[in-house]
Amino acid sequence: MPLMWNWSMAERSDRGRPVAFRGGGFSPRPLGVVGPLVFIAVLAFWEAGCRTGLIPPLVLPAPSEALAALAHLVETGLLWKHLGASLQRLLVGWTLGTLLGIAVGFSIGLFSLARAGLAPVVAAIFPIPKIALLPLFVVWFGIGEGSKVATILFGTFFPTVVATYGGVDNVDRNLIRMGQSFGLSWLSIVRKIILPGALPAILPGFRISAAIAIVLLVAAEMIGAEFGVGAYILLAGSLMALDELLAGVAILSVMGLTVNWLIARLERFLLRWRT
């Protein structure tokens, strides 16, 4: 009945009506300028707030003050000392943690015995905040570089293990069967099929473990560190030097962005076969 009525309506208006558009939405468009714009607006508002006294210096120093603290670090050359010490710890800790993590992740993924024995241990230790273990690390590895590297190492090891064996588990079984059907050796199958097949899961794991490493840097440099970005932030905090604190946090943030960018480049290179 309503259908009939619609027909008669259409007949009366001779040219018809266009069908109303109902699609669209639900698909975010990239708007490149918005991000930087919001960032700049927030900074400008913040600076203005500090200049006018709306935000008292005790609560939050102006961005320009943090910038000045940063400039002071550059002038005195201390920036490179702090960065150098931190990057060395990050690099050694993260590299060792990642290599060990991949090795253990592969054993769990490949060997039933390792899976039965190690997977529950990893699951049990993974959620422990490594900061809580810091005193233990100090007893085991001393107050020198050992405990700092160990903190970062342990922090990066577990997420890498989980990402790696998840990746190994997800490798297409048909590809492995193909390798076997062509008589490929066990080592060839692991190297040429399982490793590249697990990479799409391992590389995002790198992003997570690198972020964790930077988070742990501050904790690692709590003990006996003279130089390092984390030590600098801790000192600024204990001196209530909030401008230096913000400068240090900004350095950490830039470190995080840089690492993220490097890993994105690595992903683009290693996973260029993907769509």
Partner: peptide
């Protein structure tokens, strides 16, 4: 050697 806490210094 900054060790943050008195307890940590005693241990060290």
């Amino acid at each position: 050697k900054p060790l943050q806490k008195v307890g940590a210094i005693i241990g060290a």
